[in-house]
Design a protein around this nucleic acid. Structure first.
Lengths: 108, 108
DNA sequence: AATAAATGTAACTATTCGGTTACAAATATA
DNA sequence: TATATTTGTAACCGAATAGTTACATTTATT
């Protein structure tokens, strides 16, 4: 079973969980309440996020608080970031092309 | 069938295809030759990448050239990027903590 | 001590995923 | 025209995914 950050953020529910936990620390039940799906389903998503280190648990009595570990997103960030030169060049060359046409039209 | 950039880059083979096509445009067969798995398997991966716009095809005779469209990675990039303030603060506070300890030790 | 609350997990199901082999179709070459 | 090349796709398979309900366990409350 593959368990990496790319696979973790592939699921829209897990991305939403990350979004929630980025603003506040919540217990398992509090996370589950924010969704339509069952608590065990959320429990599984949290387990997957925990297995790749994106969240840690902090047991307080009978509650488990879910703490985000945002630095675990860095590898995925860097993988995508290596292509930003590529898409910026693409956009630049498109803008140059537009400017070129613009200049031609201005001359008319 | 969900088909978005997050799901596209979740698979390691597809990430490798993106890496290949970032440096050169290749035909379907040329892509397949770089992998151990069968050509139809690669064909499926290319189809998925195409369905979410990450690659375009350019038919030249009987060959189909695979052209990367790196700007399609931008939404995934931005989604992750919104957390970089979060992990930078985390790293900063860790560094501050280390510096604090260091300063204490220096005083001894 | 009895009950309520928070949570994990087992068992099950339907669907998707990632691979395979076999075959068909289109195009280039001899 | 016959053959080789490039490619897509159908049919199949096993494993993983994402959900469910039912139940067990631990901790807090009454």
């Amino acid at each position: 079973m593959r368990r990496d950050v790319f696979q973790a953020i592939a699921d829209p529910v897990r991305r939403e969980i990350i979004e929630l936990l980025a603003t506040e620390t919540l217990s398992v039940n509090e996370v589950a309440e924010k969704f339509e799906i069952s608590r065990p389903a959320i429990s599984k998503h949290l387990k997957i996020l925990n297995e790749c280190g994106i969240i840690d648990f902090n047991q307080i009595g009978r509650e488990r608080l879910c703490l985000i570990q945002p630095q675990k997103l860095i590898p995925a960030f860097l993988w995508i970031k290596q292509y930003n030169k590529l898409w910026e060049d693409r956009i630049d060359s498109f803008e140059n092309y537009i400017n070129q046409i613009q200049t031609k039209n201005d001359k008319k």
